[in-house]
Design a protein around this nucleic acid. Structure first.
Lengths: 185, 185
DNA sequence: CCTTTCACTCAACAAGCGTTGAGTTTACGC
DNA sequence: GCGTAAACTCAACGCTTGTTGAGTGAAAGG
């Protein structure tokens, strides 16, 4: 016997979500059409709307991200981990959100919220002055590296291994988050 | 007597370019319509096309950037300068390009070219190992800070003064570009 | 086995877009 | 001054988009 009806539904919803994540990550919100998502998923465009209500809701569900897990690790290592430099790249959800966050207001809100939560999380672990500013800079640093690496694909970054990137970046992040008090000036 | 004909033309072209830069910087390429640019400039939509040929060419002319001037300064200071942290923010051209570079392929190409030129420029000034990778990371760092500051407007960054940001970022960039050789490991 | 129900498709609509060509006004050359 | 050319506006086209409602075929239920 074939698959039950609810099963079929869940499966096609999943196919649509996967297709949506792929395309949103590759082209961003505006350039991704419902029709293209439907074709990639092998279904009719109207089914996408029937299942998800609207394009905005589809995007919202496609990029929904499980909150950043607080591993309790040292801030520097935590940053290197959560932005995907250690094991493999970032998941499609994150790429889709990053790709769209500069041009799609809703993605911008989600991204801001997520990043500021991470800033707070790191800022609380710091003891030095300007804790929150330093944390925000550190998060922005990782954001920039992720963009240069995964979205813009700058050649020098694409060719490098995640380990090399992490190795070179570590002292830089430490200078930001664990500054050595200087003697003078 | 009123303004001459060529003068009027140059003036309206300029108004259109300014309007285009403003809107491209605020909303990105896709969400900026020719009609909105025309309204902001106080002219008819078709005039925009007649003067610039197409929306793509308008964008291309609006974000055209005078190549990064090689001030001959030390790489670290040069980075802090060219990304606008020292005197005022970045010009609207740069913001428009940054805003659109993740979703508009043409903007992505321009941005990639500009950034990689800067990477080369900085890489050549370095003497340590992994020069080009370090340079690419440094440029990405500045890119991320600019995005967090000017486009996403993360609260901790928006409230900070450019001087504070430069002051906290300097040691971090130095760790990346002028690494102190460690004793072991 | 028949009816109902639900996942799904088909065709189409309304709106917004970039773009075009004809018309209108205004400055220029003779 | 008058005809010409250029700057500009008006109305409209063709296309794509997100979205909708009617129709269809197969699974679920009694």
């Amino acid at each position: 016997m074939g698959p039950t009806r609810a099963e079929r539904r869940r499966r096609s919803e999943q196919r649509i979500l996967t297709a949506a994540r792929t395309l949103f990550a590759a082209r961003g919100y505006e350039r991704t059409t419902i029709r293209a998502v439907a074709e990639e998923a092998g279904v009719d465009p109207s089914l996408v709307i029937q299942n998800f209500g609207s394009k905005r809701e589809l995007f919202s569900r496609a990029v929904r991200i499980t909150a950043v897990p607080d591993t309790g690790a040292e801030p520097v290592e935590q940053l290197l981990e959560t932005l995907g430099l250690k094991l493999g790249g970032l998941p499609p959800q994150s790429l889709a959100m990053m790709r769209s966050m500069l041009t799609h207001p809703e993605a911008a809100d989600s991204a801001r919220a997520l990043l500021e939560r991470q800033v707070d999380q790191i800022g609380e672990a710091l003891t030095c002055e300007d804790a929150s500013l330093r944390a925000a800079l550190a998060v922005s640093v990782m954001l920039g590296v992720s963009i240069g690496h995964q979205l813009l694909e700058l050649s020098a970054l694409s060719e490098a291994s995640p380990n090399d990137i992490a190795r070179l970046l570590r002292p830089s992040l430490q200078a930001l988050l664990r500054p050595v008090p200087e003697a003078d000036s």
